[in-house]
């Protein structure tokens, strides 16, 4: 486990760190954090339980247990990462373990929005490049410098252009990934919308 956890705040433009590779398609949020750990009213202690069952099965050989990965903060995954349940506990657990950004072939929709909402950029690269990075990680340490402004990742040996949804990129650069205050800025528009929607007037019972 990493030392003190501090959640990200404000603008996010550069993330530098060591990569940790996790191979597999369709890795679901039940695997990232099994349901029994959802019995909690805060996210504080989730970091140590990330991939709990997969790690137990691999008896110390899971990437999240390897000594050389203990300081890693950029997760390299394959396709449809984070599919399944909407539990934000999954990215919260990854973040509390130490993950600050994820690079993969593709991400499940709800997992992706959860990552944005808590300040973890999810970036994509073609399968070929991901395979290359994962192979590299098997034998050597890979330290990456992610530059969101230019959608680039740099290292000693490898450089590549990252892909990220333009709206997400802008939100990280401006700090608006923490959306509540931006949404609240449109207070009047929200009231107007509420008054315009036809069904608000239909339903008098309970709603």
């Amino acid at each position: 486990m990493k030392s003190e956890f501090t959640p990200p705040i404000g603008k996010i433009s550069n993330i530098n760190g060591q990569c940790i590779s996790l191979i597999g398609d369709d890795i679901d949020t039940d695997r990232i954090i099994p349901a029994r750990f959802l019995k909690c009213v805060n996210f504080d202690s989730l970091g140590e339980s990330v991939f709990e069952d997969d790690r137990k099965t691999l008896k110390g050989k899971h990437p999240f247990d390897l000594e050389e990965n203990k300081k890693a903060s950029i997760l390299i995954v394959n396709s449809n990462f984070g599919c399944g349940s909407s539990r934000e506990h999954a990215p919260q657990a990854l973040m509390r373990w130490g993950i600050k950004a994820i690079i993969g072939e593709s991400f499940a929709d709800i997992f992706y929005s959860n990552c944005i909402a808590i300040g973890i950029p999810c970036l994509t690269l073609p399968k070929k490049v991901i395979d290359e990075i994962q192979n590299y990680c098997c034998t050597r340490f890979l330290f990456l410098e992610i530059d969101l402004k230019n959608s680039l990742a740099k290292s000693k040996d490898l450089n590549f252009n990252l892909e990220i949804k333009e709206s997400s990129r802008k939100m990280f650069l401006s700090g608006e990934w923490d959306a509540t205050s931006t949404l609240l800025d449109n207070k009047n528009l929200i009231e107007n919308k509420f008054n315009q929607l036809p069904y608000i007037k239909f339903n008098t019972n309970l709603l």
């Binding site: 909407s86 709800i110 959860n114 909402a117």
Partner: peptide, 10 residues
Amino acid sequence: FGIGTSQVRD
């Protein structure tokens, strides 16, 4: 559609 907890907050 399903949402996460931060979106529930929003």
